[in-house]
Computed example of a mutant assay.
Amino acid sequence: MVADHADHVDELLGAHFAGALDPVESDAVHRHLEICAGCRDSADEVIEVLAALALIE
């Protein structure tokens, strides 16, 4: 699924920050995060969770 500016990308954020998306999907997430404050807030939460998980591995 490639998100455009009308779609929210919440479901892609974990995979995005884990480096699991292909370049097209990753670029779409980046473009969406530039315009969507709600998804940026969600992205901040995903980053915090991934950082916490890295501490316990």
Rank of each mutant, 00 (worst) to 15 (best):
L50E: 08
D44F: 15
P23K: 05
C36S: 08
E57A: 15
L53T: 07
V29R: 01
R31Q: 14
C36R: 02
V49A: 13
C39N: 07
G14S: 09
E11I: 13
P23D: 10
A20F: 10
H32G: 04
M1C: 12
E57N: 06
F17S: 02
S42P: 00
A6D: 12
D27R: 08
A52E: 15
I56W: 10
V46T: 11
V9N: 01
L55Q: 15
A54P: 02
E25T: 09
D41L: 11
A37G: 14
G14M: 03
L21N: 07
D7S: 12
V29Q: 01
V2A: 09
D44M: 14
V46K: 05
V46P: 00
D10P: 05
A15D: 11
L13M: 01
E11F: 15
V2R: 10
I56C: 10
M1D: 12
R40K: 02
L21K: 07
A3S: 06
G14L: 00
A52L: 14
A6V: 13
L53V: 11
L13C: 02
R31D: 12
E34A: 15
E45W: 13
D22W: 01
H5N: 11
R40P: 01
L50C: 07
I47W: 09
G19C: 00
L21V: 06
E45D: 13
A15N: 03
H8Y: 10
V46M: 05
H8P: 03
D7W: 06
E57S: 14
D41T: 11
L12N: 03
V24I: 11
A51I: 06
L53S: 10
D22H: 04
A6Y: 06
A37W: 10
A51W: 03
I56F: 11
D41N: 08
V29M: 03
A43Q: 00
A3Y: 04
V49S: 07
E34Q: 13
S26H: 01
C39T: 03
A28C: 03
I47P: 00
L55C: 06
G14Q: 04
V2F: 04
A20S: 14
I47M: 10
L12H: 07
V2G: 07
V29W: 01
A3Q: 02
L13T: 01
H5V: 14
E45H: 13
P23M: 04
C39P: 05
G19K: 02
L50M: 06
P23F: 00
C39S: 07
I35N: 13
C39G: 06
M1E: 13
G19M: 00
S42E: 05
V9Y: 08
M1N: 11
A3E: 00
A37Q: 11
V2M: 09
D44P: 05
V29I: 02
E11V: 14
A15G: 08
G19T: 02
E48T: 15
L21M: 06
E57F: 03
L53Q: 11
G14A: 09
D41P: 00
E11A: 14
E25S: 12
F17M: 04
A43C: 03
A15S: 08
D44L: 14
G38T: 09
V49I: 12
L13Q: 01
V2T: 14
H32D: 01
A43M: 02
E48N: 12
V29A: 01
A54T: 02
A6R: 10
V49L: 12
D7K: 08
D22Q: 07
S42R: 10
L13R: 02
R31T: 09
A20Y: 09
S26N: 00
I35K: 14
A52I: 13
A6W: 04
D41F: 15
A28V: 01
